[in-house]
């Protein structure tokens, strides 16, 4: 029986850089399991900030404060150790960042080595093959696994990064504008990939590309100036937005 607890839930989440300014204001939303949820909004609306709060990236920087709750399977991640959270939540960044000193093989497994988890050779081989297959990269690189990943194209590098994140079998995969640095063909491949992957993992994707949100997400969040303005089924939101601001953004009246 499927669990009724939403896999990820924001409860009045706030993120502030200084005492006066809040980059994210009282966001509350429940993310459905095995879906692709898009976070949209104009520049500076807080979407990336919200995303990065989910794997506690802000703990790297001194002045950032997060209030409210963010629940992962019912547990509040804000009171968990960052390392534990990050093992269950994967992240893919805007610029593909395969580790330049590791081979493709080692890159896929880097999550394990960074966590001090030892695997047998057989386990390693299986994991690498499985992950690369699930990002449709296996056939292209299976003969050059021990080469460094930097010679791959942008799209391939990004898929490698996705494979790397998937290797840890996260519950949620966070993606911060993952295709904005890629050409249209590579973007298309990754979008197809994500549609496939949602069966295994819940995806939360920040995108400034409305077309992308429409193409792949089943649910969308629209943020403006730090607030969650609207959250609902993508289809409905695009055809019949409730809020005026959402409408303005979607019709291009707002940047």
């Amino acid at each position: 029986m499927e669990s009724v607890i939403p896999i990820l839930e924001f409860k009045k989440t706030c993120v502030s850089y200084t005492k006066q300014t809040m980059a994210v204001k009282y966001v509350s939303a429940a993310i459905e399991r095995n879906t692709i949820t898009a976070i949209m909004g104009p520049s500076g609306c807080g979407k990336s900030t919200l995303l990065r709060a989910v794997n506690l990236m802000h703990s790297l920087y001194q002045n950032i404060r997060v209030d409210g709750e963010i629940l992962l399977n019912g547990e509040n991640i804000l009171s968990m150790e960052p390392i534990d959270v990050r093992r269950r939540v994967g992240m893919v960044f805007q610029r593909p960042a395969p580790f330049p000193t590791m081979s493709i093989y080692d890159n896929v497994l880097s999550g394990f080595s960074l966590n001090g988890i030892k695997l047998s050779k057989a386990e390693k081989d299986t994991t690498v093959e499985h992950c690369l297959k699930s990002v449709a990269l296996w056939d292209e690189v299976k003969d050059v696994l021990n080469k460094k990943g930097t010679f791959l194209s942008g799209g391939q590098q990004q898929r490698l990064c996705i494979a790397r994140a998937l290797a840890m079998k996260p519950d949620v995969l966070l993606m911060d504008e993952p295709t904005s640095a890629l050409d249209p063909i590579a973007t298309k491949h990754i979008e197809e990939l994500l549609l496939d992957l949602q069966k295994e993992v819940t995806i939360l994707i920040v995108t400034h590309n409305m077309g992308q949100a429409k193409r792949i997400s089943s649910k969308s969040m629209f943020m403006y100036l730090g607030e969650l303005v609207e959250y609902g089924d993508t289809e409905t939101m695009f055809t019949n937005p409730i809020d005026e601001r959402t409408k303005a953004y979607l019709t291009g009246k707002m940047g």
Binding site: R86, F93, R95, F99, N115, R164
Partner: peptide, 13 residues
């Protein structure tokens, strides 16, 4: 690039 360190940390290291 900062993304290197962040990617490493994001994996849980």
């Amino acid at each position: 690039p900062a993304s290197l360190k962040e990617a490493g940390l994001a994996l849980g290291g």
